[in-house]
């Protein structure tokens, strides 16, 4: 019989693990437990620690402040500084306008510039057809502008307006004389048919000296207004052709040099003229003479 008390036993040489240790070793070798120890536990610990730290308001505040400070230092580095604005492709008036509506006080960090919005602002200018806004190397805010070119003058409620070939408003004109080369249009919906007006203007060659302008009638057709109160009423379609015809007639028989008030070409097959008051009187009297009346 071996001694029952554990101490006196010669268990010193026995390398056997205790039951508890044996069970723990087996637990350590269990795949699920190993996964827990190696993945789940570190994950839970780190998440728990971080959320515990963030649970305090001061820590959160300090963290946010730290973030913004770092952001600040990066953004204020000289590499990201924008020092001046360059406006290309614009006349001085438009460039002035652009500088006025882009309120940037240099130097500014390129992170603070909202290029998309600036682009919208610049394009919203009536004198600007297209624009690109970008930050160029060397800290320059580059604004490249394609301006609208005024092609016609419109006499409207606001006075003389300059329109480009699409009918878009460019700016107000001070005086007609400043833009002597440009045709004048007027009437309802005149700006919608600028292209047609320009085509008409192109063929008015011999009449140019007498031309006053084009008037849009009823927002559907053009009238050519000449001096001495003469008008040429053009049809809705093929107006250019009708005008050419008129000019041809004028050159053939000096029609417009006579006492006419209106040349009506609205019906193409039947050009009509309205004579002036004196001419009517004269024709009546000559007719009477012819008829041998009186």
């Amino acid at each position: 019989m071996q001694p029952l008390s554990r101490k006196s036993q010669s268990a010193r040489h026995d390398p056997a693990p205790s039951r508890l240790k044996y069970r723990f070793e087996r637990l350590k070798l269990t795949p699920g437990f190993r996964f827990c120890i190696r993945v789940v536990l570190p994950f839970a610990l780190s998440v728990g620690a971080v959320s515990l730290w963030f649970a305090s308001d001061d820590n959160r505040l300090a963290f946010n402040q730290m973030i913004s400070e770092v952001r600040e230092t990066v953004e204020s580095r000289p590499e990201f500084q924008v020092k001046l604005m360059a406006v290309d492709g614009a006349t001085s008036i438009v460039a002035e306008d652009i500088r006025k509506i882009l309120p940037v006080d240099f130097p500014v960090s390129s992170f603070d510039l909202d290029l998309g919005k600036m682009h919208e602002t610049v394009v919203a200018l009536s004198a600007v057809r297209d624009a690109t806004v970008r930050v160029r190397q060397g800290g320059i805010l580059q604004v490249e502008v394609v301006e609208r070119v005024p092609k016609v003058l419109r006499r409207g409620d606001r006075g003389l307006e300059l329109l480009d070939e699409t009918g878009a408003f460019v700016r107000l004109a001070n005086a007609r004389a400043d833009y002597a080369k440009l045709p004048v249009i007027a009437g309802d919906g005149a700006h919608d048919a600028v292209k047609e007006a320009l085509a008409l203007y192109a063929v008015t060659g011999p009449l140019k000296a007498r031309l006053r302008g084009f008037e849009r009638m009823g927002a559907r057709r053009w009238d050519v207004v000449l001096d001495h109160g003469q008008r040429i009423l053009l049809p809705e379609t093929k107006a250019v052709r009708a005008l050419e015809r008129t000019i041809a007639m004028d050159q053939a028989i000096q029609m417009l040099g006579r006492d006419l008030t209106v040349v009506d070409l609205r019906l193409t097959q039947r050009p009509t003229i309205r004579m002036g008051e004196d001419a009517v009187q004269a024709m009546r009297s000559s007719n009477t003479i012819k008829a041998g009346g009186e």
Binding site: P15, A16, P17, Y22, E25, R26, L29, P31
Partner: peptide, 24 residues
């Protein structure tokens, strides 16, 4: 002949073999 001692011996062998195998 002695249950307790045999059990401990089995435990020793099994634990060492498990450890080498790396699996329970």
């Amino acid at each position: 002949s002695s249950m307790g001692e045999t059990e401990r011996a089995i435990r020793t062998a099994v634990q060492a073999a498990q450890k080498m195998a790396g699996i329970r």
